[in-house]
Design a binder for these strands. Sequence first.
RNA 1: UGUCCGAUGGUGUAACGGUAGCACAGAAGAUUUUGGUUCUUUUAGUCAGGGUUCGAAUCCUUGUCGGACAACCA
Length: 550
Amino acid sequence: MSEEKSLNFIEEIIENDLNSGKHDFIITRFPPEPNGYLHMGHAKSICLNFGLTQKYKGYTNLRFDDTNPVTEETEYVESIKNDIRWLGFDWKNELYASDYFEELYHFAIKLIQKGLAYVDDSTSEEIARQKGTPTQPGTDSPYRNRSVEENLALFQDMRAGKYKDGEKVLRAKVDMAHTNMHMRDPIIYRIKHAHHHRTGDAWCIYPMYDFAHGQSDAIEQVTHSICTLEFVPHRALYDWLIEKLEIYPSRQYEFARLNMTYTVMSKRKLLQLVNEGFVSGWDDPRMPTLSGVRRRGYTPESIRDFCDRIGVAKRDNLIDVGLLEFCVREHLNKVAQRRMVVFDPVKVIITNYPEGATEMVETENNPEDEGAGKRTMPFSREILIEQEDFMENPPKKYFRLAPGQMVRLKSAYIIKCDEVVKDASGKITELRCSYIPESRSGSDTSGINVKGTLHWVSASHAVPVEVRLYDRLFKVEDVSDAEGDFKEHLNPDSLQVLPAVYAEPSLAQATLTDRFQFLRKGYFILDPDTTADKLVFNRTVTLRDTWAKQ
RNA sequence: UGUCCGAUGGUGUAACGGUAGCACAGAAGAUUUUGGUUCUUUUAGUCAGGGUUCGAAUCCUUGUCGGACAACCA
């Protein structure tokens, strides 16, 4: 069955290029700067770039845009590679803009020789002033008309380390009156006496983004250089440099970056959350970083599905985080092992069940997956159920436990509530119930039908575990649109820790890679904070709940 | 005030001059030993005006609204 999916605008461009014979195959690249951790926005770009070359003949390079030595570190390189692999993609070549420093230097020489670049002694303030404003043309630098020979000598001296940081820059000679600010003689090289994470102290001049990115694309013969919308104004310069340098004509295409409700997606803001202690780190499960969502329990499959569903276009968007959660649930529903865990217990005494007896009841690990098999769990006279599963004065459509009302304990027996025991303050201390012996799950001859089925654990067999429940990081849907500092909109209740809840015994064997659904509670994954004597579970996402809404 | 990009249900995204479709969210119902899953059904949309055309979401034009652009960041 070929259910043809419509193409996004980039796929259309590629199909046209392939059909017209412009290209026989395509090359894309994912170009992170190694100065931070990857987030969901990067996931969109990764899925796009790698997805394209899986769909069409070609390959994708991983290229680190490491042209600014003061912000970049090897630590980030490793985490970025790890995140991409985790997402399920593999690159053809691992490349670095810094590999091209020598070649880039010669591109600059060529530009100088063509009279299209000059060394400028102006200060950064002077250069900013020369740029003019979007509505007013700029003015020429007094150094704009230096001779080719002088520029060549000066630029060589820059490389040789004869000048201090900021003393001189190399500028492309384009047009100081251009309506596009980026064309007003952009700086293409600056002096930075700094240690580079890969080239060490070999260089003290470093190319700017605009003189590295397109050139690296050209060197790698990238056919489709895909980036986000904020680079649209750079494209004119990208093309100008390719033309003047007479290098491989890579083409840049821009798409709208991902924004999601109730979170922020900019490296700057995420950094603030980490540095100012609003979250525990880059991998805090509330963070939209890949390390965060991984720890939260989101699966790579669900993230890829999400990226597929949100599409690729050029209009600004704000994606409902609910869509991501839908994708996560959809995948986890198929793979998560079911377990029973009681968060906020009330004791149930089954008065007609023999004291001291224990029997094992069998229950399926995953009703969605026959192959997941079954397990057993102990049933006894004293059971724990959720407090919220009992109501003394229930509303009409409440079909959990209530005085005189019957429910099934999942995979065990039907019980009936006979008596509510309270302490002096009126707090319910236990529920005295009777069970129907013929209603045993799997061999029920009672003929009784109940509406409600509850999860439960045997009080004496339950193991204590910690669960961490997460809610949206921010209180407002559109954080970037909200008044004031974005941190004022942080949700104070985004993390709720329950230090000791009651888990069925089999959960003691949980490992970091297991995915669980705690019945009626949501999907959970073990957190790395787990120790030998304390299991810690993160709630990945709740189950859909059509009852709670009423 | 300039240049550029954009505008389709609540949110995303299709329709490439010829029936405005899909997903999420919402609503109703069926099934269910998870108020989960699954399955039905359903609500809701072309920014505004003018023009071209037999026919416009699509082309032209004017306007409105949103976004980007003045780092020795990427």
